[in-house]
Design a protein around this nucleic acid. Structure first.
Lengths: 197, 197
DNA sequence: ACCTGAACACCGTTCAAGT
DNA sequence: ACCTGAACACCGTTCAAGT
C-alpha cells in the first residue's frame, strides 16, 4: 500500500535535462536517467508515459525556463529581450533546444511564450488581425536562427560574428514590425501575389 | 575474390530516403533498409560507414535534389525560386528535412546551394563583403520556416495561410536584400549596437 | 502506491567465415 | 570484393510480483 515515493515527474525531467545537457541527446536513455536517480529503469514509467513523453517533458521544461521581460519596458526592447532570451536558452541547452522546433505549439509553455510576443506586438500598434501572422514570422525567424546556431550551422564563424548576425536579424524584424503598425508610412508588408509568384 | 555487388552506396541511400519518407525517421533502421534491398543488415556496412553516415548521405541526397533556378532570370525571381524550391523539397520529404538543420554546411551539396544564393545576391548588387552575411540571414530564415512547416509548427493553420506567411517572409527578405545594395536610399540594415542593446 | 526482476523484441555493430 | 551467421551490448517496454 502507501509507500513513500523515491522520485517524482519533476525530478525525472530535471535529471533528464541535465543528462542531455552534459552528454548529448543520444545519452538520454531511460536507463541513464534511472541510474542517475538510483532507481531501475522501470520505475520511471510510473512518472512518465514513455520515452517520447519524457522528451516532451524536457522540452516543456525548457520553455518554462525562458525569461519573460518586464511589461514596463517599451515594446521594442521587450521584443529584443524575448529574442535574446530565446538565443540564450538555446545556448544553455544546445543539445535539447533543436527538438523544440519539431514539437507542437499547443503546450502551456509554448502558449505562454507566444502570449508575451502577442502583447508586445499589440503594444507596438500592430492591428489585432495582423498580430498572429507577425508573431509567427518573427518567432519562426528567431527560432530558426537559434536552432541553426546551437546545431552548429554557424560553426565556421566567430561568436562575435554570429552575435552581429543576430543583431542584424533583430533590426530587420524590428523594421518589419514597425511597418505593420497602423498608419505606418511604409505600408503593410503583405505580398502582392500577382507580383510575387 | 571478385564478386558482383548486389548493392551500392547510391542504392542504399535512395532506399533509405524512400523508407524515411514513407514510414518516418524512426523507421529508418539498418535492418529495414537491408530487408528492402533483400540483403542482411551487415551487408550495408560495406557501403556506408555506420548509421550516422547513412543519415548524412540521405541529407546530402536531399540537397542534391534541390532545384537550381535558371541563371537567366532576374535576381529577385531567382531568390524566390530558390526559396520556393527549399519549401517544396521540405514538403516532399517532411520526415527527413528537419535533420538538414543539424547538419554541417561544409558538404558539397550545401556549398552548391549556398553558391546559388551568393550569385543572385551579387547580381542584385549586394557588396562583396556583405554577401556572406546576407546569405546566412536569408537562408536561415527560409530554412527555419520550411522546417517549422514540415515539423508541424503551423499544423493549426491552413495550407493557404502558411503559403501567405511564406509570401510575406519572401517580401520581407526581398526588401532586406534591396536595402543592402550599394547606393540604396534605405541604407544598410546593420544594427547600431548603441541603439539596439 | 511505488518500485523491482525477469523477460521480450529490437537496435547498431564486430568479427570470422564463406564464395 | 562482397555478403552472411553468429554473437554482443544496449535499448524501450510489459507484466507479474514484492513491500
Amino acid at each position: 500500500m502507501g509507500r513513500p515515493p523515491l522520485i517524482d515527474r519533476e525530478l525525472v525531467l530535471a535529471t533528464a535535462l541535465e543528462l542531455a545537457d552534459e552528454h548529448g541527446l543520444e545519452a538520454l536513455t531511460m536507463g541513464a536517467v534511472a541510474r542517475q536517480l538510483g532507481v531501475t529503469p522501470m520505475a520511471l514509467y510510473r512518472h512518465v508515459g514513455n520515452k517520447a513523453d519524457l522528451v516532451d517533458g524536457v522540452v516543456e521544461l525548457l520553455l518554462t525556463q525562458m525569461p519573460e521581460p518586464s511589461p514596463a519596458l517599451p515594446w521594442s526592447e521587450r521584443l529584443t529581450d524575448l529574442a535574446s532570451g530565446i538565443l540564450r536558452t538555446a545556448r544553455r541547452h544546445p543539445n535539447v533546444f533543436p527538438v523544440l522546433l519539431q514539437h507542437p505549439v499547443t503546450t502551456s509553455g509554448a502558449r505562454r511564450a507566444r502570449r508575451a510576443v502577442y502583447a508586445a506586438l499589440a503594444d507596438a500598434g500592430v492591428p489585432a488581425d495582423r498580430v498572429a501572422q507577425v508573431e509567427r514570422l518573427v518567432s519562426t525567424a528567431v527560432l530558426g536562427f537559434a536552432v541553426s546556431d546551437v546545431a552548429g550551422r554557424f560553426r565556421r564563424h566567430s561568436r562575435r560574428q554570429v552575435d552581429e548576425d543576430f543583431d542584424v536579424l533583430l533590426a530587420l524584424l524590428g523594421r518589419f514590425v514597425a511597418s505593420e503598425v497602423d498608419g505606418s508610412s511604409e505600408g503593410p508588408a503583405r505580398s502582392d501575389p500577382a507580383r510575387q509568384r
